[in-house]
Amino acid sequence: MGVDKRSFLKQIEPDGLKQVVPNDFPGKVIPGGNGGNIVVTTLDNVINWGRSNSLWPLYFGTSCCAIEMMQTGAPRHDFSRFGFEVARPSARQADLIIIAGTIVNKMAPVLRRLYDQMAEPKYVIAMGACAISGGPFFYNSYSVVKGADHIIPVDVYIPGCPPRPEALLEGMIMLQKKIKTENMTKKVNPIDGFDEGK
């Protein structure tokens, strides 16, 4: 009784169960007969490949850059093509924090707390002039933190006021490239030895 899985698949696909290997899979897949396969790769490569293609960002949009960040998720630019679409408002489920906007003195402890709540591995993108250096509020402002890297370590800086959505995509792809070169055994927590802008 019941339908054999393979014979059922043969009905819809004459060649039987096709093994689809993604183009960017970091390794070699050798067909081993009997439907099984042999995969030759390293753990580092596979883990980094998986991590870089499913980064869940925490949107930390404080001001104008947040609008361009929303625009990046919208139909024309659509960052779900690169695996960024699972937006988490909660730090505990996020891999990546996108700082889009100015960080002021009152906000700084909150940002640090959110960063500390994130599970490792964690990455930071500073989007826009304000998050990089204070931007237009660098001079004469008594309340603006002159760059998010005074509070948490930043992986990718994206200049612009605000940056175009293409610039944000470029920054995200750069972060993916960075993750792909990581070594699991040598990885350290970026907050270790972070000087907090001394």
Binding site: S63, V104, K106, F137, Y139, N140, S141, Y142, V144
Partner: peptide
Amino acid sequence: LGYIHRSIEKMCERD
């Protein structure tokens, strides 16, 4: 309030 207070009014006095 104040989580994005960027002191724009005070900056204007110097610009």
